[in-house]
Amino acid sequence: MLKVSKLNVQIDGKDVLRDLSFKVNAGEVHAIMGPNGSGKSTLSKMIAGYPGYTVNSGDIEYEINGTYKSLLKMEPDERAKDGVFLAFQYPVEVPGVSNFAFLRMAFNSICRHQGAPELSEEKFRKLVEEKTKLVEMAPDFLERGVNAGFSGGEKKRNEILQMAVLQPRLAILDETDSGLDIDALRVVANGVNKLRSPDRAMVLITHYQRLLNFIVPDYVHVLANGRIVRSGGRELALELEKNGYNAYL
């Protein structure tokens, strides 16, 4: 579903991703692990369409309805409408816009694009309230501003809630475990696991092995110095836990 080919990216004149290549198919869960500064966040933001990066060469292709499109030419909202979703590492606060209103707008926007019928406000509310159970959030938070005054754990759970409502085909989870205690991590992981499906691809970006105990990946890749230096099954994660990243630097 996702094909990254020899991607070379610079920020402010510095190389961040070097000839990066990897592939993800529908139904698979991949983990990308790496030390700080390896380019993990850059990769996830590039897939979502964050501005400010210079692509020198390479491509990111996304398969939908049997054909591949280059994501690099698409605006962030166009990517979202085609089913790409990024769960941010540091979700931004947008006070003054309620979580409910925001979710509804996003949902309807994506529905319109995909030709699916929009839901009435009542029906949508029921849908969302159902999904809040998935991440153990009380429905009253829906009236609060987007991430406004949320704790770290609440922000991460909100990202997963959005994912549950918007039903993306490709989900990138950027360091979803950072800053979470064991209980919050369990709730988030549970939510993600319930969203695994043969039609959906997931990429988990993480530094620590811990998350992968809860969300078991099919494949693990090591990202160091801007490129994928090793790929393997989930045992690779355990090996990294034991030996660290030094061998790859």
């Binding site: 605006e75 962030p76 990517r79 409408k81 990024l86 947008v94 996003a106 987007v146």
Partner: peptide
């Protein structure tokens, strides 16, 4: 904030 909203499917103007 703009990017966050767009990444959830809202067009730039929206």
């Amino acid at each position: 904030q703009l990017f966050y909203l767009m990444s959830r499917g809202l067009a730039r103007n929206e």
